[in-house]
Design a protein around this nucleic acid. Structure first.
Lengths: 126, 126
DNA sequence: TTATGTGCAAATACTTTGCCTTTAC
DNA sequence: GTAAAGGCAAAGTATTTGCACATAA
């Protein structure tokens, strides 16, 4: 267990966002200037395989990471700011399983992302 | 309107699958050997902007294309064969809108992919 | 004719890998 | 001491782009 790995994990557990490899690299650089982008990539990969991190690929063509959590959730991405909100809805989960079954499949995974723009103030409480 | 563009469109309307740029290129090469991969990329891009094609990015990191259709649908991907099944479910569509609203957002887009493995024969009719 | 499209090769962006050095234990 | 991890630079993969030539209308 090296300092590089410790710092990478810390960078992801402290902030609850979804940085890509470059963002992790920048963040980690400030804490430990002795680290290379290759190490970041290798470590993120390693931690994903160990289920310590989860890897997502939202629109934009980069992999983004977050700390793995016990509870499954999906994501809503604010298309104006890039801000990400996590949510979970049992009804949707159930429907996905049901649909897969109807089509003759065991559901082994899914990807659900909502893309939205925030309500304006005047539209609140609707 | 050039021969290259005609052939690309034909390659996608004849087969109802979801090929990536390279697959389209190979397919088109057989019909019109005078075409470059760059033209394929440019044309796919062009047709997507014109809403003639739809672009998807399933797991695997490549863009894949299908003919645009009037009716929206999502995809179930067979993780063993890569085969893709299209489906549509109003209940899921409605829930997505509802969830976005609850979180304070207008839903402007979404991505829903199910990944599954086919039932074995013995498991049919369950 | 002439604006538009194409082919080729080079450039880009992100990620992975080979190889040699460094380090944790 | 030794196996594992890291740094650097090069390679890999998918896609985009600059530019000179070709072609549809």
């Amino acid at each position: 267990m090296t300092d590089q790995r410790r710092v990478i994990i810390r960078a992801l557990s402290n902030s609850h966002d979804h940085p890509d490899a470059t963002a992790v690299y920048k963040r980690v650089k400030q804490l430990n200037s002795k680290i290379s982008l290759a190490t970041v990539y290798r470590t993120l990969c390693l931690f994903e395989e160990a289920r310590i991190l989860e890897r997502h690929e939202f629109k934009g063509g980069k992999f983004r990471y977050e700390e793995a959590s016990a509870s499954h959730h999906d994501h809503l991405i604010d298309t104006q700011t890039g801000h990400i909100i996590e949510f979970h809805d049992e009804r949707i989960e159930a429907l996905q399983t049901e649909i897969a079954h109807k089509l003759g499949y065991h559901l082994v995974g899914h990807r659900l992302e909502l893309y939205g723009t925030p309500f304006k103030k005047s539209e609140r409480e609707t």
